[in-house]
Each structure stands twice: as structure tokens, then as C-alpha cells.
Write a protein that binds this DNA or RNA. Sequence first.
DNA 1: ACGCTTTCGCTACGACCCGTAGCGTAATGG
DNA 2: CCATTACGCTACGGGTCGTAGCGAAAGCGT
Lengths: 248, 248
Amino acid sequence: MHSRTPSPAARAGRPRSATADTAILAATRAALVELGWSKLTLGDVATRAGVAKTTLYRRWAGKNELVVDAVAELFDELRVPDRGSLAADIEGVVLQFAAILARPEARSGLMAVVAESTRDDALRERIRASIVERQKRLVLEGRARAQARGELPPEEDPEEAARTVDLIFDVVAGAVVHRTLVSAQPADENWVRGFTRVLVTGLTSLPGRPQEHQTGTAADSPPAPGNRAATDSPSAPERKAADSPSGA
Amino acid sequence: MHSRTPSPAARAGRPRSATADTAILAATRAALVELGWSKLTLGDVATRAGVAKTTLYRRWAGKNELVVDAVAELFDELRVPDRGSLAADIEGVVLQFAAILARPEARSGLMAVVAESTRDDALRERIRASIVERQKRLVLEGRARAQARGELPPEEDPEEAARTVDLIFDVVAGAVVHRTLVSAQPADENWVRGFTRVLVTGLTSLPGRPQEHQTGTAADSPPAPGNRAATDSPSAPERKAADSPSGA
DNA sequence: ACGCTTTCGCTACGACCCGTAGCGTAATGG
DNA sequence: CCATTACGCTACGGGTCGTAGCGAAAGCGT
């Protein structure tokens, strides 16, 4: 063995410009603010970033993938503040989420790529990995903290717990998105307070597993409801060519 | 006064073909299914509908407005079934809503126009009037029914009540949309049951104006959080030219 | 220092779609 | 029968797409 590649994915030749990546993503967000999704063109982004249009196509397959990466960076700042109670923690996270969605580059970009992802499985997976999964971790973190405080009981059935996390996540993210983008009204403190009150009340005051009273089978869902924790390690965000310069 | 227009908006000349309208909207939905939003072209829709491309532009300002009208018709079938209890009624409506969102023409079309509406106020108003408002009426209907049953107390402060309706609407619609489009998992009976349980528990088991126990002021929200009930009567869907052939 | 490899900037290109103008024709109402 | 409006059709300039091809630049290994 003579030619050992010193580090993975640094094989040979001229390396990709890292500054170009950040410039392109920043230019994409700027273009989203000024033009919105539909009028954003890759040629324009390339000009703003000071690179050639062909460079863009060498790194991203198209507009969709580029915008996903550009928007994903906006969610890097999300944290779970320790405010002392479950309700207060949720309020804090929701307010942060709402603040991000209030920015025009997120508004116009995020929903557009989600819409596109309904016809493009690879794109949806990219969104899930780079945006959704990061948010879901916040829910897990908040639950762990609430359990440590004794506000929530420790989970018994892990599968049931996972389903609850998914439910909470859909409710929280969905409500904020709908309030912000569809109803077009600010998710300000008042709204977040009312929303959190309903959510926390609904979560804490319902018994662990009440009764499968009416409709029928409630807990014997088949073993594979989704594809939880089955699409992770391989086939990362899968850039067009090779390396993965996006923050990560 | 001699030239009395016999009926409003039927002034003179050749009337617009009503069949063409339905054909165009149906063709739009078909194109959404086959091509999705991004690859849908107006020329293609015109060909499918058997009309000239210019006819499309005489009636709709562009792709956005056309798709809004085409998708809006999908929501005509929404009803509030009387299942006997608030929880069961909500489950019924949510399941209907989920069924509509499961159709590909709604998935790819709805989110795309919502995304576009973030930069186009007229488009957002069109969506609100033709889609959102219709759904919100279901919430009002369900609440009235629950009040008649005694499950919910009659509202005291009408402004507070309106705010609650908006909150419920954002939570329900947002959660279903997020579950369906972002998480990309079916909003089936099991999920709807769990979601409804949390929502109904949160709504009913919180007293009308409880205690500002931990987080702080919970009820003294300022009087004007949004601009409710201020954009209604004038400037209807405002087609491009004149008449309004969409179902209505 | 020398190649080898990969990236970069640039130009040019065919293909496609947009949105409109113009024309002759069809369908109503007065 | 005439004014008015809608329709189908064709054609057009303008813009974007995504790719190909080229020479030059920037690293790595020997």
C-alpha cells in the first residue's frame, strides 16, 4: 500500500473553496429575501456570490437542494433554554422557532421546498436530515429535562414514547408554521402562551394509557409505523458530487 | 335610465364558457398529479383542457391564482359530521381534512401557493377567502354543537372566543399538514385519535381563566393581538377580468 | 521541480416556458 | 343587424434552464 488517502474525502486535486460555499448560501438567502422563491434564479445567485453559474451546478443538483441547505443554517441557533418548568421551556423554544419563521428568507424558502418534497423523496430526506431531525432533538431534550424535574413520568413503552414525541413535534411545528404562514399573524408571546397552555394541559392531564374505548385497536399498531431510525448513517445529505461542505 | 343591465355581471357580448372553467380546473388538478407544481405549465394545462392558452390568461392572472382555485374545490366536500361528542366530531373532521391532504393534487399544490403567498398579499387573501375561511367555519360549527351538548361553556368574551377559534384552527390544520407533508406519514385513525385526545383534553380541562401559577401573566393579554375581522367584504377573490365562474 | 487530478471561471448553446399582441371567428344582447 | 365580448390560433421577444467545452488555477505525491 503506497497511496493512502490521508483523510477521507480529500483525495487529490484542487480542493473546493470553502468560502465559496458560505458565500453561495448567504447569497441564496439574500436572493430569497429580495426575490422570493419563484423569482430566484441560480444565475442570479451565482452573480451575487461572485462565482460562476457552473460552480453552482457542480455542487448542488438544483434550486431545491440549494435552498434547503441555505435555510437549514437558519435553524442552527435553536436551543432549549432552561427556564425552570416544562411550560416555560416550551414557550422559549416555540418563540425561537417563531422568530426564525418570521424572517422572510425562511418563510418563502421553507414552504416551497416542502411543497417540492412532496414529489421528490430524496429532497424530503434531505429536509428531514438537515432541518427536521435537528428540531426533533429539541423535543427530546425538553422531555428529558421535564422528566428530571418530575413534571413528566419516565417513559415505559419506548415505542409509545417515540410516537408521542412525533405527535408533539407535529403539533408544535405545525401550529407555528400555520399561524405564521397561513394565518399570516405573528406568533408573539400572547399567542405562544395560549398555545403552550393548551398543549401542556393536554399532555400532562391525560392519563398514561386511558382506554381504547370506542373505535377499536389503539395500541396494536403494526411493528413498523414509519421508518424510524432506519435512514441515518449511509447516504448522507448526498451532495451532487462528493464532499459535504455544508456546516454539519 | 334605459339600459338596465338585466343581471349583474352579464352585460353584453358572448358569455364565458362555464364548461371551459370546470375543464380548466380539472386539467389543472390532473397536471398537478402528474407533474407537480414546479413542472406544471399553463400551456400544458390549456392543452389538457382543450382551450387556448390565451383563454387561460384572460381568466387567471397566473399559475398561482389558477392553482388556488383548482385546489379550493377539493375542500368543498368538508362537512362536520354529528358523531355525538366533541372528540368524535373533531376526529371526523380531521380525518376528512387528512383525506384531502393525502391526495397528490392537494399536497403539491397547496403548500406551493402558500409559499408563494408569503410574498403576495393578494394571493394570500385569495387563499384565505377560498380555502381557509371555509375551514374555519367548521370549527365554529363544531364549537356551537359542543356548546349545545354542554361540553363547552358558552363564550363570554367574544374576542377571547375568536382568539380561541383561531388557535384551534392553527393547531388542527397545522398539525395535520405537518404530519402529512413534513413528517410524510399518514394521518390515520390512530394518529388522529391521539391528537384529538391531547387537543380535547387541553381545551376542556383548562378552566375558563385558570391561575397564573408559574409562567406569569396568562390571561391579561392586550386587547388587540391581531387584525381580526378587518379584511372581509370588499375586494373579493378578484379574478383578472370580471365575472367569477369558480363554483362558488 | 514535475506531473496528475480536480476545481474554477468563462462563453456559448439548444431547449423550454412565459406572457402578450394581433387577427379572424363565434356567440350573445339590444 | 350591429355592438360587444369571448374564443382559437399563430407568432414573437425575453428570460431561464442545464450542459458542454475550454484554458487556467490550486492542491497532492513523488
